[in-house]
């Protein structure tokens, strides 16, 4: 705003006077008018809670610390990073005996494995089914498309509760079906899908596999739809040219279909990774994290700390861990997607 500066400006370019600060910030002002309601709302109920959460995580915030007007009000006490320590050292049982089976690294490891195993199935099944459905001359295509969309259309919460009942230890639909197929080989007591404590394979309990089945059922249609959209935009001439060059169907799949699906599948996969990583409903309603917390993921654990145990301070610290971990994951996926986008095919 210095007058010397503006006079220099004017001297150098006398035809167009430098616009005033008020005029120059005009678009910014218009923009912030549009942003104003959203910014106000978000700063109060989105951004402020995140800061508040960080402060909470440094205190022993409990249910009696909420309302200053209540009779039994005890102000939250600053405890430094004790909550973080308790979580990392798996010592939450000192706060609440329910949490004896809590193990942070196991939960994190399981969460990552859960995400990975699910998304692999979603993407591969999604692509295979999309390719099959896209074969020219297939009958009843429209009927199949209409059926295949169903898992996406139904609310996740409802699907999770239905699958929970399907995996019932005695008369769940899955057990009844296995009984028909296996006949006498089926164990007479039924398979206790959700409560069996001993791990069955890879050190994972049966409830993991039950949830894997349920979530594969839930997740592949989205990938199929994305892949179908991409498949239909692949020009047919490419396949014809490949046929003339003598390529087999398999060759064409690997050299034409897959590379051209990639630009569409990468963002969908990233979306799938983040959604599966935070998949609350399936875990909470099917296994409830059980048996003995073996299938707990970060979100369900955080929810239990806050909801069941009312350990707000520790829950906040746990959520800060979730923030950090998701930040890392998004950084990794952003890098992957940048690499994938630079592909020019």
């Amino acid at each position: 705003m210095a007058s010397a500066e503006s006079s220099v400006e004017r001297a150098s370019d006398s035809a167009i006077p430098r616009p005033s600060w008020w005029a120059r910030t005009r678009t910014s002002r218009t923009a912030y008018t549009y942003l104003f309601p959203a910014l106000i709302v978000m700063s109060i109920i989105t951004f402020y809670p995140i800061l508040y959460q960080f402060w909470m995580s440094l205190t022993d915030f409990g249910p009696s610390s909420i309302n200053p007007l209540a009779k039994n009000y005890t102000p939250p006490k600053y405890v430094g990073f004790e909550n973080y320590q308790l979580i990392l050292q798996d010592k939450l049982a000192t706060k609440n005996a329910d949490l004896a089976s809590f193990k942070f690294w196991r939960t994190l490891g399981f969460n990552i494995w859960w995400t990975f195993s699910n998304v692999i199935f979603h993407v591969s099944l999604g692509i295979v089914i999309a390719v099959m459905l896209n074969v020219e001359g297939l009958w009843f295509k429209k009927i199949y498309r209409a059926i295949y969309i169903l898992p996406m259309v139904l609310p996740q919460l409802v699907i999770a509760t239905i699958w929970r009942n399907m995996f019932d230890g005695q008369y769940g639909a899955i057990n009844l079906m296995l009984k028909i197929f296996l006949g006498p080989a089926f164990p007479s007591g039924g398979i206790d899908w959700l409560q069996r404590i001993e791990p069955v394979a890879f050190g994972l309990p049966l409830s993991y596999f039950a949830m894997l089945i349920a979530n594969i059922w839930l997740g592949w249609p989205f990938m199929t739809i994305v892949a179908t959209g991409a498949l239909q935009s692949i020009p047919k001439e490419l396949y014809e040219a490949a046929s003339i060059d003598g390529a087999t169907g398999w060759n064409k799949f690997w050299t034409i279909t897959l590379p051209l699906l990639r630009p569409a599948m990468v963002p969908a996969t990233i979306l799938g990774i983040i959604q599966t990583f935070n998949l609350f409903h399936v875990i909470y309603f099917i296994s409830g994290g059980g048996p003995l917390g073996q299938t707990e993921i970060l979100v369900t654990q955080a929810y239990k700390l806050i909801n069941n145990n009312s350990l707000f301070g520790i829950g906040a610290a746990f959520s800060v861990f979730i923030f950090i971990i998701l930040g890392c994951i998004s950084a990794i996926t952003a890098r992957i997607s940048r690499v994938a986008e630079s592909y020019d095919g």
Binding site: T46, Y52, F61, I66, A316
Partner: peptide
């Protein structure tokens, strides 16, 4: 923020709103 599950800010929101 979009990456965060809603549950990750449950504790502060509950503490704030219940006040």
């Amino acid at each position: 923020i979009l990456l965060m599950p809603g549950i990750a800010t449950l504790a502060p929101l509950f503490a704030m709103l219940a006040k």
